[in-house]
Write a protein that binds this DNA or RNA. Structure first.
Lengths: 198, 198
DNA sequence: TGTACATCAGTGAACGCGCGTTCACTGATGTAC
DNA sequence: TGTACATCAGTGAACGCGCGTTCACTGATGTAC
């Protein structure tokens, strides 16, 4: 995966990082291979030694981002019982979006994650989704949740935090500070759990 | 607003409609003025007689879409009490997204709704948001809701249906049929209300 | 009702631009003996 | 350890493309008298 110090050092990594910066500044729409190469301080076709084409670079960025999300969700503390865990997962999802705005935007642009070979982003978000499903199963076994299929319960939770994240990123809540946004997330997730709990 | 039958008849309208089609087919990213003109069966600079530039066309499309959303929410029946009304509003929001996919996508791309004069989309979504706030006030007065500020309650509700809409449009639920999607929406909104109700 | 004129909504050619991608290349890095 | 060679990661010029926008124009529609 990682190239050791060669000419550039690790251009592959640098290009992915530059992509995040470009998306952050220019938006995910006019984000060009040439601009990314410029940021990385490299000629505009050097990227072709690391990615088949533009689409492949974006796909990689997308997969990497889903992997990061899953890692953050897996790192959530387990103490406090299954309901508390679900609460933490919800807030963590919103926090991930706030702290990785460009990545979060790319993750949910179907037209950007177009050409994916092997490890599809569907797999990748299934993984992150899997973390939520497990927590829900645990809570159900412990009798902490109201009736309903695990998928329906999971989708209600996911919808809520996903919607809040996007309202904070691209919607009318875009001007909230990070702290205000997180306080809001805590509150919204609490209301959500009230509806899910037994 | 409406041009009567002139050369084309009503090119302004035709261009907006063509935009919706182009976005539906090509995605909101590579959606070009020239392609829109082609669809409308008109030379590629005819649009400049109706819109200052590309940005103005998109802004108009965006405003129009928010107005449509508000109109649909206002048309929701009132019988059944305030909680039932909120439930209907939630499902209607998801239904609007499903039935107006290209419009819904444009509405939430901040970089597309860039140059707006006068009537900003913030106003426009404040209007749609206002419908929700009113319903919540009504429910609070009737003592049907749990404690909490009207904004926090409203944002919880909005987040849930907004998130579900986007998971259905651009996320892992994209392959659901309209009927399945609406059934899901009914279910998710029911859980949401369980958390909000007194 | 007819005519002269103004305005309005289109057309078609042209522009400059930056893009993604290809090509032939060069110089640096790694490796076999 | 030195040397010849293969490979690898970069460069710079060039391409074709479609875009948004401007320009001068033309023909259709509306209007004053």
């Amino acid at each position: 995966m990682a190239t050791t110090t060669y000419h550039h050092g690790n251009l592959r990594r640098a290009l992915l990082d530059a992509s995040v910066d470009v998306i952050a500044e220019r938006g995910p729409d006019d984000f060009t291979l040439r601009e990314i190469a410029r940021r990385a301080g490299v000629s505009h076709n050097a990227p072709y030694h690391h990615f088949a084409d533009k689409e492949a670079l974006v796909a990689e960025l997308c997969i990497e981002s889903f992997t990061m999300l899953r890692a953050e969700l897996l790192a959530i503390e387990r103490r406090g019982g299954p309901l508390e865990r679900i609460r933490r997962l919800g807030v963590a999802y919103v926090r991930f979006a706030l702290d990785n705005r460009p990545r979060f935007r790319v993750m949910w642009r179907p037209e950007l994650r177009g050409g994916l070979a092997g490890e599809t982003p569907e797999d990748a978000d299934a993984d992150a989704y899997g973390v939520l499903l497990e927590a829900i199963d645990e809570a159900r076994v412990a009798g902490k949740l109201a009736a309903g299929s695990r998928e329906r319960i999971a989708l209600t939770a996911w919808s809520t935090v996903h919607g809040l994240a996007l309202l904070l990123l691209d919607g009318p809540l875009a001007d909230k500070s990070r702290d205000d946004a997180l306080a809001l997330a805590e509150d919204v997730v609490k209301r959500l759990l009230r509806g899910l709990a037994a």
